[in-house]
Design a protein around this nucleic acid. Structure first.
Ligand SMILES: [Mn+2]
Ligand SMILES: [Mn+2]
Ligand SMILES: [Mn+2]
Ligand SMILES: [Mn+2]
Lengths: 223, 223
DNA sequence: ATTTTTATTTTGTCTATCCAAAATTCCGGT
DNA sequence: ACCGGAATTTTGGATAGACAAAATAAAAAT
């Protein structure tokens, strides 16, 4: 069995690869993400490379092998199903579940995982709108459109909020910017660096493009 | 924060003290229970003694300090609430939950724990009939009567099945010897080493005293 | 009172992670 | 072609846990 430490490395490599168009992950970035000193990451990556879980070119970065990716997806699946369980069954706040799942993802057996999956009705996305890999490691990866890519007048519903920071999530919740919510793009000021949106039946909000880039929407057919 | 390893030591010391009338726990017994070599236990106990979590007399055994006991009870609370969650909410089999809880007990935060407690309706006993400590570490410790102390003709209901072995629990389940079940003691043959009981509306079973001693009943007022 | 047996502690080693700081490599700008 | 700085790797050292086997103390048996 992989240790919690190894599982976290694999998961983070996966997420970083994903977020950067499948380019190999730089050591510095990985170290920061995992929260260790650079040398620590280098040492660990050598171990993972020996176990054929990653491909590693010194100074060229890391990338998962298919075995490594499979393991990473399994961790991601546990993480996201746990998040959903915490929100749906235990009524834990949306903004807190990521932190809790960070531990629980390493303590859930396959048996329990499948029970959770069944109880939740085999869901496909977690509370932040991130897709949940299947037991076989398949993942429907539909990248919705970022708010920064929307034009004024367009409508849709929020599909994903891609930041796990509690503060940010609380902000989003306060302004009803949560997955599923229907919204209208009111204005987009490229030079003023701001996007204004109106969640259905709620007050409109103006976001800096920094924040707006973390919110993704599925646009309605006709704009 | 205490590591999972430390938490397990504290929990097992607590359970062993409990099971042996508050006598100090012998190192050998502790080592076996925790599943490590004797020397490993000795080393760990020295660490725990330094942290004032146990009192330790070389060659005299260990016992928890009140701080240690408080921490142990907190682990036991998590363990038992998780067991109940697994059975009640996730429909996991009675005989498997102990094993699963062994990992999960170290990954549940206080916030999540209280949510579980609330969801289950503030229960007082776990699926095996073991009492659940309160958040403040209080524990109603009602030791019911073992089957081996019952007389033929007596009636009652099963209160506790005190063994975590999956095989034994499956056996118990197969014969309806699970907490809550009403039973009648049919015969007790001290020299033949056997007890025969009838679960309500089910076939009677004959148990060796070894097995019978693990099953506790709350006797009905009138026998 | 010895001797034998058993339980416990010591000692010597290992592995997995981690950090700090020194050494190296590489890349971009001159 | 060369230099400086950023990223990365090496090196040296720490800590938590764990095992095996030798040493010791305590208990039991003779
Ligand atoms: Mn994690
Ligand atoms: Mn999520
Ligand atoms: Mn445990
Ligand atoms: Mn139990």
């Amino acid at each position: 069995m992989a240790s919690a430490t190894v599982e976290d490395y694999l998961k983070h490599i996966y997420l970083l690869e994903q977020a950067d168009m499948d380019n190999p992950v730089a050591m510095g970035r990985l170290a920061t993400t995992v929260g260790v000193a650079p040398g620590t990451a280098t040492a660990m990556i050598k171990t993972l490379a020996n176990a054929h879980l990653v491909d590693y070119e010194p100074r060229g970065g890391v990338r998962l092998t298919s075995t490594g990716q499979q393991m990473a997806l399994h961790v991601v699946r546990r993480h996201r199903l746990v998040e959903l369980l915490l929100v749906e069954v235990l009524s834990l706040d949306w903004s807190l579940v990521h932190h809790e799942a960070e531990q629980l993802e390493h303590a859930i057996s396959d048996i329990v995982l499948e029970k959770i999956d069944a109880l939740l009705g085999y869901p496909t996305v977690d509370p932040h709108g991130d897709p949940i890999p299947t037991a076989k490691g398949h993942l429907k990866y539909v990248q919705p459109v970022s708010l920064t890519d929307c034009k004024p007048g367009q409508q849709g519903r929020i599909a994903r909020v891609s930041d796990q920071d509690t503060q940010f999530l609380q902000f989003a919740e306060r302004h009803r910017l949560t997955p599923g919510m229907g919204i209208t793009i009111d204005a987009y000021d490229k030079y003023g660096d701001a996007v204004t949106v109106s969640p259905k039946h709620c007050d409109s909000v103006t976001l800096g493009t920094n924040a707006a880039s973390k919110i993704f929407v599925a646009l309605s057919k006709k704009s």
